[in-house]
Amino acid sequence: MPEPILKVTDLWKSFGGLTAVNDYYLELPLGMIYGLIGPNGAGKTTIFNLLSGVLKPNRGRIVFNQIDITQFRPDQITRVGLTRTFQNLRLFPSLSVEMNLKIANHIHLYYSFVSSLSNLPGFFHSEREMQKKVDTMLDIFGLTQYKDELATNLPYGLQRKLDIARALMTDPKVVLLDEPSAGMNTGESEDLARLILQIKEKFRLTLVIVEHRMPFVMGLAGIVQVLDYGSVIAQGTPEEIQNNPQVIEAYLGTGDTIA
């Protein structure tokens, strides 16, 4: 059996006397869409913050593509191929759509300051390649006509798409999507689900999705993991999770299934 591209073992995080994540584990197969769900306050975003280096764990190990990244900074984690989006958008609102994408790509540009000042061939080659990537992302995400718009002027649904497009500009192998359909109506979320499947195949991505909208995540994920009070309480296919009594209890207190 091949090594998982992301393996997390015995992960703990406390804030003062409050334990937000305890004994979290994950083995993420290459090419999988993995759903991470749970009630409010279950620890989902804290886990994303730990995996992306925003927070450091009190205990545990995070191995990405056979590299121990437990103590890596966020920029180091992005550079090796793991990136994320945020539930609360962190675009550069006063910059254009195109510039938001270009800034994300600069982590992989290797020309020197002297090359840029002197207009050396390496500088022009890197800039051309970056522009090709930007144009591709604008096209895939339906943003071409908005490329000169300030990010803050985009409709909210398009800002969400720009956030994902910007993450892809870092050339990731794994993308963590934190509430990607938040604030979208049903039609927009269905369109986004189709887009996520498209980019998964085109860029050969592995994804972990935190999401409150159950039909969205259940329709995309091959495996769903459920958190409650910082602990994994269930893991399985969407069908298994929807009918798991412990999951139903955590979400609803009682009931038959999770829709």
Rank of each mutant, 00 (worst) to 15 (best):
L89Y: 09
T186I: 10
A182V: 05
Y156H: 13
K44P: 07
L26R: 06
G157C: 12
F141C: 04
Q198N: 14
D163M: 03
F141W: 12
L205A: 03
G17N: 15
H108D: 09
G41A: 08
R59K: 15
T257D: 04
H106M: 14
Q76D: 15
P155C: 07
F113R: 09
L117W: 13
S118T: 14
V63S: 07
P238L: 01
T19G: 04
D135V: 02
L197G: 12
P74Y: 00
T45Q: 06
L28F: 02
Y229Q: 08
L55Q: 08
Q71M: 05
F123D: 06
L195Q: 10
F86W: 10
H106Y: 12
E190Y: 12
L11H: 03
M99N: 14
I47V: 15
G35R: 00
S116E: 14
Y251N: 01
S231K: 13
V232E: 08
K161T: 00
E3H: 11
R166K: 12
L6A: 03
R128S: 15
L82G: 05
Q225E: 13
N88I: 13
P245A: 06
F64V: 04
R166T: 00
L28E: 02
V208M: 13
L51H: 07
E211I: 01
P238K: 06
I140W: 05
E211T: 07
V210M: 11
P57T: 11
L162N: 06
N244D: 12
Q66F: 03
L18C: 12
G16T: 05
N88F: 14
G187S: 15
G236V: 01
L28N: 05
Q76Y: 01
I140C: 05
K161L: 06
L26M: 12
A20Y: 02
V217H: 11
T85Y: 02
H108S: 10
V210H: 07
L82R: 02
G60Q: 02
D75K: 05
P57M: 05
M169C: 12
I33V: 15
N65S: 13
Y110V: 13
E240Y: 09
L197Q: 13
L143G: 08
L55W: 10
L55N: 11
L51S: 09
T254P: 00
I67F: 04
F203D: 09
G60S: 07
F216P: 02
E211G: 08
V208I: 14
G187D: 15
D23H: 15
G81N: 06
Y24P: 01
L11A: 10
V174A: 07
F124S: 12
T83H: 02
I37Q: 05
D191H: 12
S189K: 05
V208L: 11
T254N: 10
F216L: 03
Y146L: 04
T45C: 14
V224E: 09
S14F: 04
Q131N: 14
K161F: 00
E3R: 03
N244T: 04
D163N: 08
N243F: 01
P180Y: 04
